[in-house]
Design a protein around this nucleic acid. Structure first.
Lengths: 195, 195
DNA sequence: GCAATATCAGAACGTTCATTCTTATACAAG
DNA sequence: CTTGTATAAGAATGAACGTTCTGATATTGC
């Protein structure tokens, strides 16, 4: 019996995250996870305790590999509306690259699949929304008064979730880009009104 | 062995629809469906062929019992933005009545759970989006030019999906009402600008 | 070379799933 | 009352699930 090289923990997380992202929690079986990660049941259970443990661990990977890079432009200065437009475009072009209909947003999918029945996931979803909202709010700092800025940042979180939901049934990027453009044009009108 | 009265087909659809709505397709088992509908396996398989057949049949019930009544105010005349505000409020207060976090929108849930892997569902989702978009467009007829009206109607479909997704992790109606108010205020600003 | 240890592949376990089959009862027609 | 049929309850079936266990093999320290 040969002994293949042991699979790295981060590599396992990365591939498992992609499987959960595309197919959801319950539709992704342990057999599939073992196959796509190249790992073994034993080491998965050793490292993560259970399928659910692996699932929740994948959220950290999603956060650091997908969300954080997309929000990086929001980190310094006050990046303005163009950063928000870029954020949408980055996600749309990724979905286009992977192939549409796409996987949407892993957190959004989890919200629908497990939000109400899985407190641990509910917490992670809340954190994700907060991170998005504060990034969007930062982008609008120079353009809007505090109250309206907070409202619109929350609204952008909702719009983002709606857009990724749409991307799960969109056959091309074109309607997604149109929707993103509408959202951005709404923002511009809001800012012009405030100025 | 007693013989309870045979359960009506529409009654079965009604209860099954509620179960799928709240818990999704794969998390709703046949055992649960038999229990909550008060029907039998035999008659379910006789009437609908399979669990999947029952699921798709439930979409018609959802359309006629949930969606159509909510869109009725859009049927006659040009109801304006207030009808859109009412639409959101109706859904939010229903979610509040059922108990939050709520079941969201059955079609939105299906989009996430089965959109990319179930062509029959994809078709039903598309129909639902089209119905919503044309209702919203009608409400905006008097306020906006054709192009912008179509864009904003599509946008409102996205916003609605986002809002119902949020309702699956919201612990009270308050943030949902705030989000709906933001959406409506955006619409009002758009219309005022066009006037 | 030789134990000790880690980790592999895959069988085994008990449960649950969707679906089908069996059997007994309640009703309708004669 | 008898017979035929529709339909009830729920057992049976085979597959798939998450999880655990077994036994063989590769690597490590001597």
């Amino acid at each position: 019996m040969p002994r293949p090289r042991s699979s790295e923990r981060q590599d396992v997380l990365d591939r498992a995250m992609r499987a959960f992202w595309a197919n959801g929690y319950s539709a992704t079986s342990m057999v599939e996870l073992v196959e796509t990660t190249g790992s073994t049941r034993q080491s998965i259970y050793g490292d993560f305790g259970s399928k659910h443990g692996l699932y929740t661990a994948c959220f950290e990977t999603y956060q650091s590999e997908v969300v954080a890079p997309a929000l990086e432009p929001f980190a310094d200065g006050t990046p303005g509306i163009s950063a928000i437009a870029d954020y949408f475009e980055i996600q749309i072009s990724r979905a286009e690259r992977i192939g549409l209909p796409g996987p949407g947003c892993m957190v959004g999918n989890a919200t629908t699949e497990r939000g109400a029945s899985d407190p641990e996931i509910e917490e992670l979803v809340q954190q994700h929304h907060d991170r998005l909202a504060s990034a969007f709010a930062k982008a609008l700092t120079d353009s809007l008064a505090d109250i309206r800025r907070a409202e619109l940042a929350q609204f952008l979180v909702l719009a983002a979730q709606g857009l990724w939901a749409m991307s799960r049934v969109a056959n091309s990027a074109e309607p997604l880009r149109a929707q993103a453009a509408t959202i951005v044009s709404i923002l511009e009108r809001e800012c012009r009104h405030a100025a």
